[in-house]
Structures are given as structure tokens and as C-alpha cells.
Design a binder for these strands. Structure first.
Lengths: 192, 192, 192, 192
DNA sequence: CATGAATGAGGATTCATTCAT
DNA sequence: TATGAATGAATCCTCATTCAT
């Protein structure tokens, strides 16, 4: 048991190190040896947990993505106020972007780069199923524009990624007021 | 003269090869030797035109960015119909994303990755100055939300990048109709 | 233990190979790959023991120099016959030059070339401290000319290096008789 | 004529550049391109005057050596005062070492390194013929120790090279007084 | 004569991965 | 399970040399 526990911790340390190093240096400047060092582990040990570098990054990606989804929809229950539901999800996403900045940044880099195997990248935005459901309802009820999900996502959700990046580069800061305005912009863009 | 001409062509071939290869494989999986081969040039020749790999990518980035700007604002003259002006610019950007797909994709990758030197990335969205001017006017005239430029950009322009990526991955396609709706979404998100 | 032993042997093999190859071809014509091959080791392995080529040569230099010093002063005890003491040291140096010819040649090349980092070369002739002490006494006792140590060294010790080189190039040979005469010349040059 | 003149100047510039750069960086860190640049000439031009890099260094060596010999024996006429003759030559050599420091340093480096082709290195100290003649006389007249020329050279002349190096490395300085003492040491070492 | 552009061969160094322990 | 040492293959880059002009 303690044995297993230790294993899990080691694996986590590796995943964390991967995120941190890839975030700071990019995939191409992150050698396995550095990952090992940061995780306080021998390079050889990595290969007990992952097949190779690609596999390590792929799995890291999938895990972070899953944490993202869990965080965003944790406790979410669709009500019959669609706008409020959307707002709740939107704000959770914003919160994740802000509080789990390094996870968010890692996802962003993987999503916009060929460092992840096509197979691992999963199909686009499927992981946001509850949101897609919401939009489906919204379209049926004529509350939301009849646009492909990707377009809705592009306008109402993806901007948060962009702004997170801009914030990380000190080009811009979220204030309470801007947050409210930004949400309004998101809603305006997709509402009918 | 023919000499100079040939030099320019060689340089261009290198820039083109860089774009193509980085687009397909990412920076880290694009060796100089491959770039050289694709440009029909010896690896050593690259170093006559560029200081090193980083410099090659930086310069390529700056050149593509400049082509983007030129394309987008070519012939643009601010009228006194703000929405129409915005629409013109927006559609030019969309057109660039569609027609110069590989340039657009390259820019996207550079903008969302630490492969470009900070100094080269520096100017951020400044290169869209005429658009920023337009927004300034719009805010003064109470036609556009009083939000930081980065937020306006995130909602009305950046989605085009995302959609270009999605289209490249066959997850979505622009039709005439969607384009009009998408523009409406862009405008809705920023208009007051 | 066997592990450590093997490591030490590998390191030594690298140092030996460096000496041999630099002696025969000079620094600039001694690629790391050849050093590796001669030491029966992969090129990458060199970098487990040394930071880079410069470091390899620097460390080799320091090690050989230290062997030189140890050899020369091994068992030396200053008596109160200064000339005899000097003769003892001088002959040990000659012996080293003759018996450890490749070490001696390597030192010579490093001492007369900018291949060694200044910091590594730094200590100059300080490593011959017992000899410097002897000269100090000799000057105080008016047995030795009151000249800077470097001059004393130039006349009484350095000629041995030159003669070792000449011998290596078959221009000259030490015989028993010449040795005695040569020592006399050394002593004559510095004695008062 | 002016044509020829210009050629000679270009050749000289190349030789000078070679000396300077090899002195400062060593042979292995002196690329042809740098030599060309310092001589204000295209790299290709070097090959009009020299067969290749080795030839350039060889010829430079031979030229400098010849200047050395000319300088040292310029106007020298053997008198019948052997010690005075020796002193004259010795001091000319010292003067060359001091005044033509860079030439002297270059010779030193070539003499103690495998950068010069064996054939070009000529046989040892043959170029000092007048000095060798002097020593011959001295030995016959029982004024000078009956030692091989190389030994005499090692003790009475070579120290000047060593001291020149030491001076260049700021470990020691020639003063008027030391010079006289140093000459005395030289003479003492070889006189009977 | 002179050149600047071009290059192929080679060099130092790195790194993902393996293996003996 | 865990490791540190070891490595072959690859990568970036340099440089002596050539060639078209």
C-alpha cells in the first residue's frame, strides 16, 4: 500500500515537472534528464511509468485536460435559466484559468502546437459536453445563435485562453469590473 | 543584379521552408538540415542569411507578421461608418486566414508558444494600429464597449484564429452563411 | 566498488588518450571523437567526466602537473648542503623528462601555447615551491645569484624542457657525461 | 609595378594577420575567414598567395624566422674577443625578443607545437650559424664548455624565450640590472 | 587578380533511451 | 522497483576551400 502510494507520488511528480518545464521552456527545450531531476528521480525511472517522451507528454495532457473538465463542471447542474447556467460555467472556466494558471497554460500550449499526438488530442471540444448540451438547448429555445459549437466556443470561451496568455505576459489584467464586462461580451456574442 | 536576385530567392526559399516544416512538425522537430534540403541549399548556406536557428525563426515570424498586416490594411481608409470599417478589416483578416492558411497557421503557432524571442514578439497587437484607432474612436463615440484593446481583440479577432485551426483540423468549415453570422457575433460582442 | 573502479579507469583512459593525441597532433587536430575512440568509450561518455573539451584539457594539464610535482619532490628533504639539494631536484626533473616523456611533452606544449585556460595555468612555477624555498635560502646565504625566481628557473630548469624536445626530435641525446656537464652548466648559471 | 607592389602588400598583410591572430587565439582558433578579414581581403584571395592554411602558416614561420636571423646577425662581425662577440649576439636576441615581441612570440609558439610541418621547421638551430661558429671557436680555444650546441643553446639562448613569455604574462620584467645579471648567468653557464 | 557566395565534410555537444546492478 | 552510467544517433554550427563572375 505504502508502496503503491509512493509510486503514485512519483508519477505525479513527473507529471508536475513536465508541466512546469514545458511551460517555461517549451517542449523542445525540455530534456528528459531535467524532468527527472526536477521530480527527484532517475531518468531511467521515467520509463517505468511512461513508454517514452511522447507518451509522457500525451498522458500529462490528458490528465490536465481531465482536471480542467472536472473543475469546470464540478457540482454543475443544469437549471432552467440558461443564461445563469452559462454564466456559472464561464466563470468556473475563468477561475480555472486564473487559479490553475500553469495547468491552463500547459493546455493552451498543447492545443496550439503539434507536440501532442493527434490520437491523444481527442476530438476537439468534446470534453465540454455539458456546455455543448447547454448550447443545444439554447439553440432549440432560440436563445442562442444557431451556429456550430466551434464558433460558439471560439467567441465565448476561447477568448478566456487568449486573455489568460495576455495576462501572463503582463499585457492586461482582469479586474472585477472587466470580468463582468467580459462576460457580457461573451454572452452578447452568442445570444440571439 | 542577377546575383542579388538569386540571393533574395534563396532567402525566400529558406523562409518558406521554415514555415512549412515548422507548421507540420513544430519547431523542435525541424532540423536545420531539413530546412536546407527543402530550400535546395546546403545547411551552411543558411548561416549566410541568418545568425542561427532562433534568428531564422524570429525573422520568419516578423516577415510573415508584416505580410499579414499589409494584407489586412491594404487600401483601408477609415470612413465615418465605424461598423462598416470594422467589417472590412474583419473580413480581410478572415480572408488572410483562409487564403494564406500556412502563414496564418505559422503566426498562430508562434503567438502561442515560447519559440519566438520575447524581443521579436514584443509589439504584440500593436501591428494592428488602424484597428486600435478604430476602436478608440468607437469607444469615444459610445459605439463600442469601453474595454481594454486586448479584450476587444480576444472577442472579435482572435476567434478567427481559433476557427482557422479548427478548420485545418477538419472540425468545422466556414460557409458564406456562417461567415455572416460569425461576423455578427464578433460585432455583437464588442458593440455597445 | 567495482563500479567506482571502472569509472576511475575510464576517466584515466580519457586523460591518457588526451595526452597521447594532443602530443602527436596538437590540440586543434584532436577531435573529441578520436579521444573517445582511443579510450574505448562513446563520445557522449566524455561529457560525464568533463564539462567540455577545454575542461578535459585543463584537467588533464592539472593532473599531469601534479604528477610532475609529486615525482620531483617525492622523498625530498632539504639538507644543509644547498648544492646537493639542488642537484637532487634537478636530476629528478631530468629523470621525469626522460622517463615520463609523454607527460613532460604534454606539459611543455601546454605551457607554451594558449590551449590552457589562464585560470588553470595561473599558478605558474609556484608548484615548485620546495625549489623556490631552496633558492630563497641560497640567495640569503649568498650562494645563489640574487635574481628573480623566473630567471633562475629560465636558466637552470627550463633548459631541461628544451633538451627533452630536442631529444624527442632526434637532434641530440643525453649521455651520462653530458648530463653531468649539463648539471654543471645549470649550477654555474645560478651560483654566485 | 604598382601592381606588383600592391600584391606584395597584400601578402604582407596576410602574414601579419596570421601572426597576430595565431598569437592571440592559437592556431586552432584562427579561421581563414578571420585572417582574410583582418587583412582586408577576401578569403578566396588567400589562395592566390598560399596553397592552403598549412602553407600559409609554414611560410609565415619561415619569413619570421628569417627576419629573426637577419636582425640578430645584422652587421655582426666576429672579432677576436669571443665573450664580447657572444654578448653582442645575445643582446641582439634579447632586443628582438623585446622589440619584435609578436614575432618572437609567434616563433616560440611554432617551435613548441606541432602546427608547423616537420619539413618547414628546418633542422633545429641551423639558422644561427654565426653563433654556432662562435661556439666552435670557443670550444677549440677552451673558452667554452665542450657541450653539444643544443645544450649551449638551451642554457644561454633559450632562457630568453622563456623570459619573454613570462614577461608577456606579467610574471616578470626585464630591468637594466636584471639584463646584465641575466647575461652573466648565460655566460657563466657555458664558459669553461 | 580579386571576390563574395556557396558548400561538404567534420566537430563539439546533447539527448532519448537502455542496461547492468 | 529504482538507478546512474553509458551510448549512438542526431543536431547545430563552423570552416577550409572552391567557383562563377
Amino acid at each position: 500500500m505504502a508502496r503503491l502510494q509512493k509510486s503514485i507520488e512519483k508519477r505525479n511528480a513527473l507529471v508536475q515537472a513536465t508541466i512546469e518545464l514545458v511551460n517555461n521552456n517549451g517542449f523542445h527545450a525540455t530534456p528528459m534528464s531535467k524532468i527527472a531531476k526536477m521530480a527527484c528521480v532517475s531518468p531511467a525511472t521515467i520509463y517505468l511509468y511512461f513508454e517514452n517522451k511522447q507518451d509522457l507528454v500525451n498522458q500529462t495532457y490528458l490528465e490536465v485536460k481531465s482536471q480542467y473538465t472536472n473543475f469546470v463542471f464540478d457540482g454543475f447542474k443544469a437549471s432552467n435559466n440558461l443564461k445563469q447556467d452559462f454564466e456559472a460555467i464561464w466563470k468556473r472556466i475563468l477561475q480555472f484559468n486564473t487559479e490553475e494558471c500553469s495547468y491552463s497554460f500547459f493546455l493552451h500550449q498543447c492545443n496550439n502546437t503539434p507536440i501532442i499526438d493527434e490520437p491523444s488530442r481527442e476530438k476537439g471540444i468534446k470534453h465540454l459536453q455539458p456546455l455543448l448540451d447547454l448550447w443545444k438547448r439554447g439553440k432549440e429555445d432560440k436563445l442562442i445563435k444557431s451556429l456550430p459549437d466551434h464558433v460558439l466556443y471560439a467567441y465565448s470561451i476561447n477568448p478566456l485562453s487568449f486573455l489568460m496568455m495576455a495576462q501572463k505576459q503582463n499585457q492586461f489584467y482582469f479586474t472585477e469590473e472587466i470580468t463582468e464586462e467580459a462576460f457580457k461580451a461573451a454572452w452578447d456574442s452568442i445570444k440571439l
